[in-house]
Design a protein around this nucleic acid. Sequence first.
DNA 1: TGCATGGCGCCGG
DNA 2: ACCGGCGCCATGC
Length: 171
Amino acid sequence: MLNKASFNSSIGKLYYIWLSELKVPEVVFLSNIVKSFENYLEELRIKYTDLSFRDKKSDEIENSIIGYLNGNLKGLDLKPHFLTGTVFEKKIWLATLEIPFGNVLSYKEIAEKAGHPGAWRAAGTALNHNPVLMVVPCHRVIKSSGAIGFFGAGEGIKALLLELEHRLISV
DNA sequence: TGCATGGCGCCGG
DNA sequence: ACCGGCGCCATGC
């Protein structure tokens, strides 16, 4: 069963979709952009209504995210569940999932790790399609030059998350 | 099917 | 150090 909800956080209002009826909460979608939330719901053929649904899983998810943003946790311990994406995109997302808290890789390195060494340009596009902000830590992928690179959720948020993680890891 | 489009990389100037 | 130009490859139309 798919459920959806939203809540306020330090990086703005977050919208998410999760699977209930599982032992561990699985996050299908997470974003701060309402438009991409609407688009994703449309892709899943779910109506944009009833945002107030809650259960134990949604509490777990929100607490985990809030804790991460407060710097209480070393990473976001949430499991993604991909209902969309091509084989290539999923490979990129899974490779990105393995980047440890506080670390970064370049788009090129991610493409190599995913088994597509020449596809760094397409890797960027695939990361732009990441349905689960922060759960798949696409903010940990930057340019080879060291520049921060683009971020669909806002480059300010990308910088914020990287600084947050860097600060905690260097304590 | 071909072609334009992207959260990029690399090299010259 | 900072461009512009060209190359790269998976998608979508």
